[in-house]
Design a protein around this nucleic acid. Structure first.
Lengths: 162, 162
DNA sequence: CACAGATATCTGCAGGATACACGAATGACT
DNA sequence: AGTCATTCGTGTATCCTGCAGATATCTGTG
């Protein structure tokens, strides 16, 4: 399946205020990127809900976080994360602890089973990613990781500041 | 909000078969990337369903495509695209034409109203993207666009080949 | 030509994920 | 104490999607 280059070859004859070509290319690519990533998630079964995996990652990095903190980091409504945490607790991947200083919320903590589940899912995902990027140069892989990280960081905070 | 680097600082003491660090970083970043992009879509109103916008882009580039062809390019089930096309026809953005050579399906064609709607949405998105990448270097923007395109292309075909 | 199998689209149905609105419990400040 | 803010959980509604099945059409074979 061939690919026609995005915006470069389109002078945008309309009244578009001459946006920089790299921005035009990004607008196009990001639009489709979501679809690709969503499709990947739907087709491959990683054994753990993606939502759960993301939360477990956050808890691996920093245990004992509140529901609200977690929600902010995954850019979801707190009510959604509440349900996800409930399901994860049901599954034995996390527990809820009381915060003696503030009994409104409490902390979510990852269990040993949660760590193991996260590791299993990560391994499957690593295999996938590895095969998907097999014929990329190491330099490109590194660059893509670096830039995606940069984008992720900017977006995460941008949504929460608003 | 600070960020702890992904996998680099975690030796993964478990039995992980020493995956290349760039792959580990990608696994992590891609996991969160979907969330960021989804959040962006949910929060910003671009005046057009994302699904519709994607299809209009495809029809701008190549008019008169079948539902199935479109579905393959956005990595969705044909039944889903059927509904999306129906809604777009309802809205006046596309029309359906008979294919004299094969009356099973027919072609989807973009209307003038569809082109205008796509342009409006594109402009809004361009503004967003421009501001999001404002403080990126032009080199980084170009690289990110190039690599995302590379990833998109690989994924699109990968899903359809299976 | 008749028929079997493949193909393209559409429809019914159900599930998943999410947000919003509201309520309850708690904390903070005066 | 009293008022307001914060945090979380629950009820409800919505959107999106895939799968299975129905229908119409095409294709190739005898």
């Amino acid at each position: 399946m061939t690919r026609s280059t995005p915006a470069q070859d389109k002078p945008q004859s309309h009244h578009l205020p001459t946006t920089c070509p790299s921005v035009q290319a990004l607008e196009f690519e990001l639009a489709f990127l979501v679809r690709r990533l969503e499709a990947a998630r739907r087709r491959f079964d990683f054994g753990l809900e993606r939502a759960h995996y993301l939360l477990l990652i956050l808890l691996e990095r920093e245990d004992r976080q509140s529901v609200g903190t977690l929600a902010a980091q995954v850019n979801l409504d707190a009510s959604t994360v509440t349900r996800q945490v409930a399901a994860m607790k049901q599954a034995g991947f996390v527990d809820k602890l009381d915060n003696p200083d503030d009994r409104r919320g409490g902390f979510v903590t990852i269990t040993e089973a949660g760590r193991e589940a996260a590791n299993r899912t990560r391994q499957r995902r690593l295999d996938r990613v590895e095969s998907a990027f097999r014929d990329w140069s190491e330099a490109d892989r590194r660059e893509f990781a670096r830039l995606t990280a940069k984008y992720n960081d900017a977006m995460r905070d941008m949504f929460n500041e608003l």
